[in-house]
Design a protein around this nucleic acid. Structure first.
Lengths: 210, 210
DNA sequence: TCGCTAATGTACGAAACGGTACATACAATG
DNA sequence: CATTGTATGTACCGTTTCGTACATTAGCGA
């Protein structure tokens, strides 16, 4: 067991850098982030970024990987087997909604990565088939719904996931411009609650339309 | 009438800078864009960026304004008065969809601006109430639909606009990461056509649900 | 045609920025 | 408790990047 007050602790230094870097990359973008600023806000120095991550890009890749790993864990914890298909999709939508609102830094990182055409994503081996859990979860529910005739049969899991992702990502990633142009603070609790319910209505309304 | 071959043409130089800057800012982000690169790709020099726009930020603001102005013009050209409410909302959704796919640079600029928390948007006076046209267009259609009982009454124009925007923006802005993780090329013509139809189904299915 | 101003080009500077060489101290191990 | 390699801090370097001082010319109006 290690002491909590060691002056040198590789794991702690690594974690410290990763945490601050996540915040700064998500707030300023890849090019906008400054290695000096990241280092300044940790208890260690810039030297360690190069020691542990090889450089700015290596640090960014590590941030990306850690962020995506957390997402995957959350997704895998969702269980909707015990609900009727209609309620299951609503529940999946709402949980996704909550998760996005609860992890804005991750959502912003995705935006950053897209600005750069996803050129870094492919470099992280462990993120190869990250989409699978979310898709297969929906796949099961949709199959049940199709079988019972409650859900429409002309859409697949990715279609549904894309709708849910679109709506949730937009809430967080575009809150600044949309909120400004339409005078609606998307992060306010009551507005958020309304949108959460609306997303459920949208998904259910669509999938049950005939 | 001006000659097309003048060596000095303020308007042309300005337009040239604006066009290239739009491309580069949307491709690389604000911090990632390089003034030297922008200048290199025009027929003029870096000096002119400072002469006409005051600096990098001024150029970015001008790009933002020009891009949003084009959006507004398109939105104002949409007329849906001669369609039944249900068909009108589907048409609005599809036209928005086409517009987003047709102007990816603009969509990416919005992402860039959101990365920076919309801090520049407020500095451009002419963008103060840009959301109005899109909202009021939908407002009219929704009112008609409510009156005839064809459309649900518990949603407003901004709710609907947000759904449409979410879906359309996501298609363009997140095509890199989503396409990679789920193996679906969102820019391929057949996929695009499918998504276009799906968006219509989603909006109509939602608004006509009871 | 001539002069004056708007427009443009060149060359350079200062600061920011990513990265590294080198020295050193802590702590696990035997 | 001596040894050794991991972990860390300091100081610095070369390049990039935004911005500007200064010189020059095109073309409009008188």
């Amino acid at each position: 067991m290690k002491s909590a007050e060691r002056l040198r602790d590789a794991e702690r230094t690594r974690a410290d850098l990763l945490e601050i870097a996540t915040e700064i990359f998500s707030e300023q973008g890849y090019s906008g982030a400054r290695v000096d600023e990241i280092a300044e806000r940790t208890r260690t120095t810039k030297r360690m970024i190069y020691y542990y991550f090889g450089g700015k890009e290596g640090l960014y890749l590590a941030v990306l990987e850690a962020a995506y790993r957390r997402i995957r864990e959350t997704e895998q914890s969702i269980h909707a087997d015990d609900l009727a298909p209609v309620e299951a999709v609503r529940r999946i939508a709402e949980l996704t909604f909550d998760h996005h609102h609860g992890h804005p830094a991750f959502i912003r990182l995705v935006s950053v990565e897209n600005i750069h055409h996803g050129q870094h994503l492919g470099k992280v081996e462990s993120l190869r088939d990250l989409g699978t859990p979310a898709a297969s979860l929906l796949d099961v529910v949709l199959a049940r719904g199709r079988a019972s005739g409650e859900l429409r049969a002309d859409v697949d899991a990715i279609d549904v996931h894309m709708l849910i992702s679109s709506y949730c990502v937009f809430q967080v990633a575009n809150s600044a411009t949309f909120g400004y142009l339409f005078g609606r603070d998307m992060l306010a609790p009551d507005v958020r609650e309304r949108h959460r319910r609306i997303l459920g209505d949208i998904v259910v309304g669509w999938l049950t339309a005939h």
